[in-house]
Design a binder for these strands. Structure first.
Lengths: 185, 185
DNA sequence: TTTATATAATTAGCCTCCTAACTATCAGGC
DNA sequence: GCCTGATAGTTAGGAGGCTAATTATATAAA
């Protein structure tokens, strides 16, 4: 489940040494990048520990949360289709089909064919799914609160701001040219 | 390849509203957590774009880099075993076997049986593997430098410091009790 | 010497992600 | 009324994670 990110990040001196061989290597950028991947993986693993104890994988949990949100914060969409779920979760429709398959097999969600458009399905939480979520959410939230208790409110704000910069920079660079910066190949 | 993290993070007001229903939910902790996962996924995706254009997945790249490092920064270990690679990469030995299988199939690495202990293998880069790496690394480094160009040196330091706090907090909490904070189940 | 235990690597089987191809349905133009 | 094309969902096949079991070898103890 981890992302195969090196456990021990290289020392800064080693990166500086490597930057002699590779002039394009920016040591402090690399350090920031590696720490970001490392921390992200750690957080994912941290959640996974708790979620898997309840028989729910990270992906399945995301789907359940999206359904709960559509049910609770239901301003616009009462019904949710697999395609919408895939969009919201950031995965392909094929992946969503697989997730819904296993969730439905475990009776946590149910598919209902749309009455108007017979191509479409509607997905919703079952009572069992709702119960499971409401039973496990408090513990999950407690753990996340503890995880972030190491940061003050202002540190959290700073972190979110810096991460936001990185995310939008990634989107910007990716957007401009497919695999840019690769003139030499 | 992404980790099925919601693309659009919930608005802060929505989290505050939800925290009425779930008193354990700490909105600012949740925001920090979600942004961290989001940014980590974005970075991973960003690298993946470039690496996959060269036919190398994230996991395979990690293995190649570990081998290159063992070759270059070779202070201690000249030879590397699959078990050591698995430890360094943070995956299981079984996973490493699979990765080496495909890397070897593509002639990027080679296995050599150890002469002393016949249970062991040593893994090393082939000429083709080394060539591929040295060809693609400059572009990869350039992209990462551009990605992090959105942060000043002091922002990078701050980011690394805050991420380090989160990582070690995760390790601390995970270490103390297997799936703690779950008294209610 | 033989037997028990530990270790290195692999294998087998599962889950989750992907892309590409397929099926069924809808909607628009002739 | 029919083609054409778009769209919703699924299926097929692959890659990369995992755990648990297997095989081969080494080591220690009886």
């Amino acid at each position: 489940m981890a992302h195969l990110i090196p456990k021990n990040l290289p020392r800064y001196e080693c990166l500086q040494e490597a930057s002699q061989r590779f002039p394009d290597l920016d040591p402090s950028a690399m350090v920031a990048y590696l720490h970001l991947l490392r921390a992200g993986t750690d957080c994912l693993e941290f959640s996974h520990e708790y979620l898997s104890a309840h028989g729910v994988s990270s992906g399945r949990f995301t789907v359940l949360m999206l359904l709960l949100q559509g049910q609770a914060c239901g301003e616009k969409a009462e019904v949710v289709t697999p395609a919408e779920l895939a969009d919201m979760a950031g995965c392909t429709r094929a992946t969503m089909t697989g997730l819904i398959d296993t969730l439905e097999r475990d009776s946590l969600v149910k598919r209902v064919p749309d009455s108007k458009d017979r191509r479409m399905m509607t997905v919703s939480l079952t009572a069992k799914g709702t119960t499971l979520l409401t039973k496990m959410l408090p513990g999950h939230f407690k753990r996340l609160a503890r995880l972030m208790a190491c940061l003050s409110e202002s540190e959290r704000k700073t972190l979110v701001r810096l991460l936001g910069k990185v995310s939008s920079q990634a989107a910007t660079i990716s957007g401009e040219t497919p695999v840019a910066g690769c003139a030499e190949c």
